[in-house]
Design a protein around this nucleic acid. Structure first.
Lengths: 187, 187
DNA sequence: GTCTATAAAGAGATAGAC
DNA sequence: GTCTATCTCTTTATAGAC
């Protein structure tokens, strides 16, 4: 409900119906509406951090990045509502997750950015800004969940459910890996 | 107000204060809350279609794509709230803009996708799916407006306002143009 | 734990004076 | 065109029986 209607737009009544119980019963488990939102948002964010943690410094740069893209894309395909919930929270200025972003997320990203920077220094990857590369991967993969409505509107008949995800995957890998191939450098 | 709080989250009272008038006065110009939303959303979407219209089939592929990326990125920098308003509308399933997306936007994208396909056929661009390439450009450029809060949280001290947009621009151009260089093909 | 009934506050919209 | 006052409906949250 929150991912479709936003925090204010979702009503406790509707959530209760969706949960198969009455409103006072739902409020017996979660005292306030905000508590429901916090619970679902925290659970979602936990899941969101995971794929980046797997980026392995000792692996092959191209393979690691491709695997990261794939994992993120699969998450968008399998948990689009979670992605949209997270997106709405950020768009609205991250009133709840702000601290987590500046803390745990920043630490994780800085750590993995250092890994990427290491690959660049070793000449195994074109010289690229690691932070912005990570932003690009977030943007492109989550786009397929967050803007699903627009994508399906534009693709029209082409938008067969699993097929267009395969197309997205190969396009993303092509552009990212082509753009990051070592030797070729930035150009 | 709508871009920060969502449709339901924004109140007519708050909008009136922001507009420097009382609530009944605002409702004298816009009879219903929805009319305010429609007005601001339509104005925004108009602006949003424009950059793609400039993609020129007779130009140099790499230059045209770079110029398109730049224009979209500038829009994110200069109109972040408009971008976020648009994003929230799409995330929520485009209840208002749905028809426009399936109509005018689809027509425009299909037309420009054909232009890109032409470049690919002429061997001036690596073989890439035109629609998904356009999605990638939308995703990466709008990300800097929509997820600004997250980006600044992660970049921390690095996030000097105009500077990180320049970094974004060069990173995007590098990855896209590198990934799309002709001859090299998809690889 | 679950329910019906209801209190209390919020928010969209209108009435009507100026 | 602009205002104060207010109607009305929605929504969060609680009371209290079972």
């Amino acid at each position: 409900m929150f991912s479709t209607w936003g925090y204010r737009g979702a009503t406790v009544d509707q959530i209760a119906v969706l949960a198969g119980m009455t409103k006072p019963n739902l409020l017996y488990y979660f005292r306030r509406k905000e508590d429901i939102y916090l619970a679902v948002l925290n659970r979602t964010h936990e899941m969101w951090l995971e794929p980046l943690e797997h980026l392995d410094a000792s692996g092959d740069p191209a393979k690691e990045i491709a695997a990261y893209i794939d994992r993120k894309l699969e998450m968008s395909r399998d948990n689009p509502k979670a992605s949209r919930l997270f997106a709405m929270e950020i768009i609205q200025g991250a009133p709840i997750l702000g601290q987590t972003l500046r803390g745990r997320l920043k630490t994780l990203v800085d750590e993995k950015a250092a890994v990427i920077a290491g690959w660049v220094e070793a000449g195994r990857l074109a010289p690229v800004d690691p932070h912005h590369l990570i932003f690009m991967i977030w943007a492109t993969t989550q786009h397929y969940a967050d803007f699903d409505t627009q994508i399906r509107a534009v693709l029209g008949a082409r938008a067969t459910r699993p097929a267009h995800f395969d197309m997205a995957k190969s396009t993303l890998e092509q552009v990212f890996l082509g753009g990051l191939a070592n030797g070729t450098s930035g150009r």
